[in-house]
């Protein structure tokens, strides 16, 4: 973990300035981290009014450090899946904007499948995070995963049914 960590630290500031997607590639965990930085640059310009740029760079760096250090592997797996869902959803939405929404039910079910799956993942992530343990006295990680599977199955059933 350690060397990779260092690498990322070098890469991300440039990503924040250039606003291009950081060219982090290679192993899966490395790709996972890109999910958060990708979201960041969009936010960063808006923040420029509040504080200086350098501050924000350090904030972003902090964030990534924190993520690298404090995130268990399973959570990273969830993050990877969530990033994938965001990309899938965005692509579908883009297609809808560009090509029109003719079979509207197809668009809705395709898009809401990703959105629904995303929020379910987010819920799973929240429930399995150690820090939130106190919020969920009744939900063990295993229970959370079982819930997640059941909900996802329901979601998939509705989506496939709706797309006809």
């Amino acid at each position: 973990m350690a060397p990779k960590h260092r690498n990322n630290r070098d890469v991300t500031p440039s990503a924040a300035t250039s606003t291009a997607s950081p060219s982090v590639s290679g192993t899966a965990p490395g790709a996972t981290t890109s999910a958060v930085p990708v979201a960041k640059p969009i936010k960063a310009p808006a923040a420029a009014t509040a504080s200086s740029k350098q501050d924000w760079n350090s904030v972003v760096t902090n964030l990534i450090n924190h993520y690298q250090d404090a995130t268990p592997q399973r959570t990273k797996l969830i993050d990877a899946f969530m990033a994938f869902l965001v990309v899938a959803g965005a692509l579908q939405f883009l297609y809808c904007v560009l090509a029109g929404n003719y079979p509207f039910n197809a668009f809705l079910s395709g898009f809401s499948a990703t959105v629904g799956q995303f929020v379910l993942c987010a819920s799973l992530r929240i429930q399995t995070t150690e820090a939130n343990k106190s919020d969920f006295p009744a939900v063990s990680p295993e229970r959370a995963f079982a819930d997640f599977v059941v909900c996802s199955l329901i979601l998939h059933f509705f989506c496939v049914n709706f797309i006809n």
Binding site: S112, V119, S123, I126, Q127, I154
Partner: peptide
């Protein structure tokens, strides 16, 4: 976070169900 879990699960599934 409980609110998040409860609401988003309800909304995502409930909306699809209603459709």
């Amino acid at each position: 976070t409980r609110l998040y879990v409860a609401y988003t699960t309800w909304y995502a599934l409930g909306t699809l169900a209603s459709m």
